[in-house]
Amino acid sequence: MIELQGIQKYFNRGEPHEVHALRNINLQIAHGEFVTVIGSNGAGKSTILNIIAGVYAPDDGKVEIDGRDVTRLPEYRRAAFVGRVFQNPLDGTAGSMTVEQNLALALRRGERRGLQRGVGRQRRNQFREALASLGLGLEDRLDARVRLLSGGQRQALTLLMATLRRPDVLLLDEHTAALDPGAAAKVAELTATIVERDRLTTLMVTHNMQQALALGTRTLMMHQGQIILDISGPERRNLTVQDLIARFAAVRKDKEVIADDELLLTGATSENQHPPTT
């Protein structure tokens, strides 16, 4: 269970180009819920994930994971509860190290690391088995350097690393966006399989509305630092992409009224520019 209470996040606070990236976010995600997140560029999707992962501390509000208040816990300590896959396939693995060495690092996520051997025979077997379940032939490339792998292979490996030790929450930030269509489909399929198999509490950002509705049990839509739509259950089951776009347009119109007032005040004209907050 994840709980965000009254989260506020600013970037460059007090400077001319201040951004109010998250505006009073309140969100509860139950155990085993698979939430997909959509929204325009700069809506704050990545920031919400980064607040949960501990990359940034919020300017206000509280983050709880399974009842623990982790708001002030540094990123590397929060990693004990959080598995992550990033948009850039290069970000989630150490390219100069081998597949098995990367997996050995992931196997101890959140635990003390000592002078035990990183990769022994037993672990190698464990890794081979886990890799075989990906169906990419990586089980035969345990000692290949990760930089030699394709983007899709690297992303699948990152997904495996994020879930090798069961995380309390899995955070996926547009993790298929940088892949070619074939690889993206494969990684999305693996994601669905693993999340279902391990009943992982998951937050997945995607730019693909089709995917947002096809995967998961609940969909959030974000706009200008706020969650403007939160659909689950039967309501979501019958929703089409067209419905989603229509609802987005409707909500956006409402919001725009507020935003327009602020735009008038600052004389800014571009829709992409973020209005300063008071």
Binding site: Y76, R77, D91, L105
Partner: peptide, 24 residues
Amino acid sequence: NTELGLALRATGDNEQMVRAQGIN
């Protein structure tokens, strides 16, 4: 090649990944 040593090697390679794996 120990767990600690691998964490050290990864730090010079990809700090973001290192933090995501719970290494300081």
